[in-house]
Design a protein around this nucleic acid. Structure first.
Lengths: 345, 345
DNA sequence: AACGATGGTTCCAACGTTGTAAACCTGTGA
DNA sequence: TCACAGGTTTACAACGTTGGAACCATCGTT
């Protein structure tokens, strides 16, 4: 049984509360007492019991991060950055994998862990706007693109604009048959919709008519999907001379298919992706992509949550909710990284 | 304020304890009462307060997983699998990133979170054997290779044997100047040592003298390290005709350098890695590698922990420790996946 | 010298849950 | 009819912590 305040108090010859005061950095403790208590703490190796703390204060010091999957490099990077950002506030991050299952996401939002976590950073995949509103009282920050101005704070990059930039870059290289890999029918697949919208906008802008056969749908955003989609495109009547993968993983899958078939990248087909994952910086050829400022995104998400948590509700309001300031929508900058897959060596 | 047992009890017209009994599936509750209580629970949307539960029972239902870094694909995959395995026991996994910092790892083991977690699954990078012994009372399962038969359960593949298999495979292709990328001096870098040992054993077995210039040291196991090491090897007097990267990421980095310099893989230089990460299955060429049964590893790790947790100590022992059965060493099978980077198309 | 102000410390009561032991029923056999 | 056994329910105390009020010095002020 690990030592508690009681044991420390006994050893230092003071009351339990005094020890608590020392531990919590309460100001009015005489230097002598403080030293004595501190010594007892060190000697016994006392560690505050989080469960008891949480029970008393309602705060656990744990926030949850829910992402579709950790295997995906983008989310892995993101998770790492969020853990780092949270560490600065000495929060612990509980990472949840939803696998894109709607019911799993619903459970999360409904507050299955309501008591256990102080806040939630959530990158929804299956759930669309309205369903997210049933958050309970745990503050939530949404990541990724959303059209719906929902009930929670939200951080994202301007996916549509970024997708348009990529497409413009491909057009600028003189390509005209530009394929898009990553379209999805599901209405909740907002990411896919937004990137498709950006792609279309750029085409329209350049006066290039859209060829529906160049827009490839995928079941999910994995390498195999990208590879398969690329194969289908190449087998079509008029294969593309450029491809925009809606994320790097799709683009890398496409790249693989192209090289496998002996096509030259970018001479025969230029390839661009989205996310700037590490693999793309080391593939052959290196991958042109959109680099969102993911570190900033992570920092902002944690900051927003901190702000919500810092807000003590105006007392005796009676309305019960007291959700404070209205939800905010924050944009994070991005950058187009033109690399070998479009520019060549 | 979310409803507690108290509220449910009031609504159902029974005592708090009866509600507790219903929630915990205690047998001797009359069907009528049970139904009434259940109804109240549903109506109020009661959720047990984990903090209070933990305070009372000492169990939190949370286990921690500590890995060097999530960005690394191998660990990301591993983390995902462990989360899945833990879910089957309805445990939550807290993922910790140590970044390979020794002090961070020490903190973990010393039990910074002692109260908060029921068990720890730990893949140490910086910490060597002895320092791991100060586990406190939280059960721990170690992942990855260890020579030291330490104080904790341990799951790993036979890294040395696997490394020897890879090297033998390269030798079998008729290569004689086989380089190894991933050696490390640090005595705690057990992974590197074991794989190097396997590499050497296979060479010795084939009667190939070891050329120290073909053993490349790296600072860490990242793509850049692999790429840099490969470049250095190629610039040497007698460049290798095969490379064994101590993990896939290193091998992929090396691959990148080779292709960049216009060398053919595997014709000029054959490349093999270790881990079977997804990237290697889609690189060009696809990467020959060792595929550990990571799913099995995850399952075993969780099972071992469960066993330790299930063990109720023989009461009144008095020795205080009561660590039960001695630490176990479990091996997980692996498989050599020969792909294009050694076999060609 | 009496007084308030202030710093330093303690006491008490909760937070929500469960183990223990005891109380309460109901029905049975003597 | 009474005691007893069994299932069923309850009261109480604890788990370790902290907010708030209360307490006791000590000091500076009038």
């Amino acid at each position: 049984m690990p030592p508690g305040l009681k044991d420390v108090a006994a050893r230092a010859g003071v009351s339990i509360k005094t020890v608590s005061n020392v531990v919590n950095g309460y100001v009015h403790v005489s230097p002598g007492t403080r030293a004595r208590v501190q010594q007892a703490i060190d000697a016994l190796g006392y560690i505050p019991n989080v469960a008891a703390r949480q029970l008393r204060s309602g705060r656990s010091g744990v926030i949850a991060l829910a992402v579709p999957e950790l295997q995906s490099p983008y989310f892995a990077e993101l998770a790492g950055l969020i853990v780092q950002a949270a560490e600065r506030r000495s929060w612990t991050v509980l990472i949840d994998q939803t696998d894109g299952h709607a019911d799993r996401e619903r459970n999360l939002v409904a507050g299955l862990r309501r008591h256990a976590i102080d806040g939630l950073i959530f990158s929804p995949l299956a759930l669309a706007g309205e369903e997210l509103s049933t958050t309970g009282d745990t503050p939530m920050v949404l990541l990724g693109e959303r059209i719906w101005h929902g009930p929670a704070d939200h951080v994202a990059i301007d996916s549509t604009a970024a997708a348009a930039d990529v497409t413009r870059h491909l057009i600028g290289l003189g390509r005209h048959r530009i394929a898009a890999i990553g379209a999805q029918r599901l209405p909740s697949a907002v990411t896919a919709h937004q990137r498709l919208a950006g792609y279309r906008a750029a085409l329209a802008e350049a006066g290039i008519p859209e060829d529906p056969r160049l827009v490839a749908e995928v079941a999910s955003f994995h390498r195999v999907d990208g590879a398969a989609a690329m194969a289908a495109l190449l087998d079509g009547p008029e294969p593309p001379d450029a491809v925009f993968g809606f994320n790097d993983v799709l683009a890398l899958g496409a790249l693989r298919t192209l090289l496998e078939r002996g096509l030259r990248v970018p001479e025969d087909v230029a390839v661009a992706g989205f996310d700037d994952i590490e693999d793309g910086r080391f593939s052959t050829p290196t991958l042109t992509t959109i680099a969102p400022d993911t570190a900033e995104l992570a920092r902002l998400a944690v900051d927003l949550l901190a702000e919500r948590l810092g807000e003590t509700k105006p007392e005796g309001d009676g309305s019960g909710d007291g959700s404070g300031t209205p939800p905010r929508e924050l944009r994070v900058p991005y950058e187009l990284k033109a690399r070998e897959s479009t520019l060549g060596r």
